[in-house]
Design a protein around this nucleic acid. Sequence first.
DNA 1: TTGTATGCGTTATCAG
DNA 2: CTGATAACGCATACAA
Lengths: 339, 339
Amino acid sequence: MKTKFTIHDLAADLSVSPGTVSKVLNGKGNVTEETRVRIINRAKQLGYVANHSARILKAKHSWTIGVVFSDIALFGLEHPFFGSIIQAFKNYIEEQGYEMVFIPKKLGNNEQTYLEWARNKNVDGVLILTGDLNDPEMIELTQSDIPCVSTDIVMNGLTTVISDDAQGIDLVYQHFLSIGRNRIYAMSGSTLSRAYQQRTLAYESCLKQARVLSTPDHYISSDGYGYQAYYDVATSWIKQWKEKPEAIIAFSDDIAMALIRALENQGYHVPQDISVSGYDDIQFASLFTPSITTIKQNKQAIAETAATFLLNLIQDQNKNPQVHKIPVRLVIRQSTDSI
Amino acid sequence: MKTKFTIHDLAADLSVSPGTVSKVLNGKGNVTEETRVRIINRAKQLGYVANHSARILKAKHSWTIGVVFSDIALFGLEHPFFGSIIQAFKNYIEEQGYEMVFIPKKLGNNEQTYLEWARNKNVDGVLILTGDLNDPEMIELTQSDIPCVSTDIVMNGLTTVISDDAQGIDLVYQHFLSIGRNRIYAMSGSTLSRAYQQRTLAYESCLKQARVLSTPDHYISSDGYGYQAYYDVATSWIKQWKEKPEAIIAFSDDIAMALIRALENQGYHVPQDISVSGYDDIQFASLFTPSITTIKQNKQAIAETAATFLLNLIQDQNKNPQVHKIPVRLVIRQSTDSI
DNA sequence: TTGTATGCGTTATCAG
DNA sequence: CTGATAACGCATACAA
């Protein structure tokens, strides 16, 4: 059971020099076709793979992509949306021969900025899963020479790949109009989140386009997070209505669920009295009672598009940064059944 | 904007040798207290952290833990249970100064065994999140000199940390008895999964202890995966019953939900006619109608216990492997309301 | 107690 | 076209 197998061993086995082996395996330089295939075949046969650390240490690039979460650092992988994005991203880049590593905030006693960590690990590029526009570390990172792509924040000079929130809200709004529900309210989560900000803007723009005068009744946002917080906010909102809506757009499925229960407890029936839509199409949107009309985001497309952009950036730097929007889809269920 | 900052720079700045700096930062050897604090302070001030790759390449250990998934490799992070475990594990080991890396099956064109990858990356230890007992690669890995801890498979010589499935099933079973439901059936997912196997055994042992003669009606398992598959299996199972149960233990919350809907569509009321329990306490268990009585696993304890064992193993090799069971908790909700 | 030299396994730059 | 040789940045044995 060989415990270490280096490029020297492989070279010795083939009676060539380590340098030649290296060149062949990295597809560089001029080598006879004959020795090339000899080396390639033998390497495959023996299952030789260059030592990761040695390679990174010496080479200009590391075949490694760093992933940065900011605020959600402690539960990022638990979050179904981000978990899915990360997984799809990882699958995609691994196919291309890249590895994914996490860029920590802190490791044991060592604290550094994102950029310092990224340099320390020699990552070829960085995926910014979630970020804070105002975080100086984030700004430092995005403005560095390290290629970055974001699936969250939009910044000058940064390539971003996100769901088309405006399209999503518009699809729902139009759907409500089409089933004859004209008085349409909206409930958002914390407006610290970029997604909720975007959906809020999109909603306002729908109102404007429909020439509806927005009243205080129309819109509420919950600063808190989680079912109970949403439920409480929804309940007090409902109680304060001067006029009741015919439909409500909730900016996430979680919010929709809490809102529906709150409505029911205040004596409203969904969808008979009030239609409610969600956002995300989490697994349980279809299992809730009533099942929830929602917007399905294409997480895989987001991840793979982001990965593609990032790998392109890594390969040639002169790409124009852009914001790329991934289309969403309306999924109609019981919570907006027209009677 | 310094682009690289090495131990040499730090040494030069302090007018000492790189060797001394290295010794101090790694807590080795004899150094004057005075120079020690000087170096430490300046390092912290300048935010110096040793280059990751260079360090791994040279040192005997890498401060890196590899994570192996087997069958679930393609969606591991999307799975709420595994996502949570990974996240908690990562948080814990990062506090201890360890990093987490994924051990791939395949990277670009390079394919190696788990053990080869682990050696290639110089990991200090491996967390086996899920594994296949019969996979030769898995056997090779666990029998190597690399410390391994599993949160799934149980193998001779391998330390494993898992939920106490027997306790979970027993808690539910006793709960049913306590509310006067004596004819108790069970529905499992694919018995290829270790967890479902364990729960099946635990259920059988409950029957035996209660001196109940098991009939073909008592137990069904679904080979498929996902709501629709469970629903279909449940429906045909229900139709074939010779005698109807008073309660059913579903081995996951997903199964419980599908089962409840299937029961309703066959004319049964839950919990009035039949009580149903789930397993896992996923977020939606409390939001489903009816809300689902379930078993809550302590994912954080599993992850942190596994991490603790693994770090211990890394620090001194002569620990006895053992299977460590983490207690679970019964969460009672509407789906088992006694009338 | 401190500094110096060596090598970890690669890749890249040279001569040959 | 190929082989020797010098870094990459660090940790460590050993010399000072």
